[in-house]
Every structure is written in structure tokens, then in C-alpha cells.
Amino acid sequence: MNTVSKKHQFKLEPKQPSQPPYKSVLLFIALCCILGLVAHWKGVDFLEMDDNGQPKLATSREKQMEQRLKRLQQCEQYVIRAKVSGYYPCYNCGKDTTIFLLAGEVWKYGVTIQGENKRYRKWLEKMNLQYWVQNRGTIQTCLRRETLKIYKYPLLPENLRRKPPLIRPPGNKIDL
């Protein structure tokens, strides 16, 4: 054998006897147990036991419920109006996707409650619109007012002028 072949000759080392993967299996099982315990604990943190050993809502969960019920008592019904005369998106204009609104005309009616995702923000910043609060009250009152506004929209003078008039405001996709 020459020096080159000697240099590149694979050196055969005696094989070490392979150890069974006990450690990694045990580690995996332990991890699963820990995760399972955490999931179990997290999964039922909305329940507690009362003094008689009966299940009841956890205090934190009950607080959430009270807060939600309180927010439903404090809602507002609003109208979004065009700030300037121009073209605005229209969801009720048939093939046309925009409609010309004069400044002050209605684009949409809606209801919002405290803490709710404020979708109106994107309308105010993406389009030339202003938000006007028309009514405040419980969710029932506000939804009722919103329904009346949407259904009676066709009778508004600004809409009766149009040919053809719209069934609902341009920005309201559905009746509700």
C-alpha cells in the first residue's frame, strides 16, 4: 500500500455495543406526563369545589361573566356618515361596488359594546367617514334601534332620490 492509499484508508474501529434507548424513552414519557398534568390543570381552571364538595364556577370565571353582562347593558347604536362627497364602497349596489354619497349621507348603521373589537376604526381611517352616536342603552335596545334604522333606510329622502333606491345602507352587508 502506498502513502496515499494509507492516508485515505478507513480505519476500522471496534464497534461499541449499542445501549438501548431507555433514557430517551423515559424522558419522553416524563415530558408527556408533565404536559398532561399541565393541560389537565389548565383545562378545568374554570371550575372549583364549594364547601359541600360540589362543583361551581371559579371566581375568576364568574367575574368574567359579570363583566360581560354589565357590558351588554352599556351599548351604543351608531351611524357612519360620509365626511365629504365622493365614492364609497357599496355592498347593495348590484354590479356596482361603489356609490356616490353626498357629505353627511349614511354609509352604515351599527352597534358596539364596550370592549368589543372596534371595527369602525378601519372605516374611519381608510375612508372619509365620521362616526355619530345615535342611541345608548342595553344591547336589546341598541339592536332594536339598529334594526329599525336599517329597515327604514329605504324611506330616507337621500335614498328615495336614487334610481334605483337601495334596500339598505351601502355599508350594511345584511339586514340582521
Binding site: 365626511k83 374611519l124 381611517e125 381608510k126 375612508m127 372619509n128 365620521q130 362616526y131 352616536v133
Partner: peptide
């Protein structure tokens, strides 16, 4: 945003709220 500077308002639709009318906002 439709422009670099956007001005708008959230106001009650009454005598007080209407002082922040489109004119003031647009100016």
C-alpha cells in the same frame, strides 16, 4: 389610510357633537 394625515371624529349626533362637524375636521 387614505391620506398621510387623517382626521375624523366620534361624536354624539346632537347640537354638541355637531360642533366637531366635517368642516372643522376637514380644515
Amino acid at each position: 389610510m387614505y391620506a398621510p394625515f387623517v382626521i375624523s371624529s366620534i361624536a354624539d349626533e346632537n347640537k354638541v357633537g355637531k360642533k366637531v362637524d366635517a368642516n372643522n375636521v376637514l380644515l
